[in-house]
Amino acid sequence: MTTNLIQAHGLTKRYGDFVAVAGIDFHVAKGESFGLLGPNGAGKSSTMRIIAATSQRTGGDIKILDKDPNLHGPQIRAHLGVVPQQDNLDTELTVEQNLFVYGRYFGLSSSFIKNKIEELLDFAQLVEKRDVKVDALSGGMKRRLTIARALISEPDILMLDEPTTGLDPQARHILWDRLFRLKEQGVTLVITTHYMDEAEQLCDRLVVMDKGKIMAEDSPAGLIKTYSTKEVLEVRFGSERNAEMSEKLKQHCERIEVLPDRILMYADDAEKVLEEIIKQGIHPITSLVRRSSLEDVFLRLTGRSLIE
């Protein structure tokens, strides 16, 4: 067996005339944390469903642990832990019952599941909530329970579709911490997200997707290095003047992007650029120097923002 747990060539998914995934190549190695980054509708979730063997591809090839998901659905799903975008916990059951019942779906023995539940409740920080019905949990707790549930079968690959969408910042950080622990334990993660900070935190390697295609592939740092400068200067002149000012600013930086509300000036030393334009008598209403992020990579690749 190869060390690649997932291997896709020309993977395509059509729904009637609509092409959701337009012939993509990628692989995921054992122990790796692999991300699919892109805006809503980029084809990330469709790709995830094909990997999860709950959606049949319409073209190309994919092997998950050397098996074809179109032919061996249950056998492949036994290797996976799935955390869907929308919670689908069993609201009629308690936290502990959710874990137990889910383990039984895989056919695992009661004694195995009971031991595993103790470990997972601890991991998900839900020990005190074990007898509480799911409806009474907060959004962050529900997500952690969904992740714990996905781990009950000790999967080779944990699939996370937009794991922190809809959570408040504190809940997101708790979740990231838990996922980071899994990564350290060597669990292979496949994550979709449209948050670049999430991708930077969690992914060893990622592909940037747009309109069903892969635009670029590398580590987060590698992508930033290839497609952006070290730093960015963000300046605002008020929405009417941004376009006019960009003409004057162009010469001071490597690349410029004019957004409706602000201008992004790309340079390796953004502080210096700011000094230069002020020397020229250009005074923006606000200015901000920051490091380049995956947002900038996405903007460069597609001409659009990730979150629209």
Partner: peptide, 14 residues
């Protein structure tokens, strides 16, 4: 409503 079957069918059940 509860999307219970999606959850079941994400496991090795058919």
């Amino acid at each position: 409503e509860s999307r219970l079957y999606q959850g079941m069918l994400a496991t090795s059940l058919g």
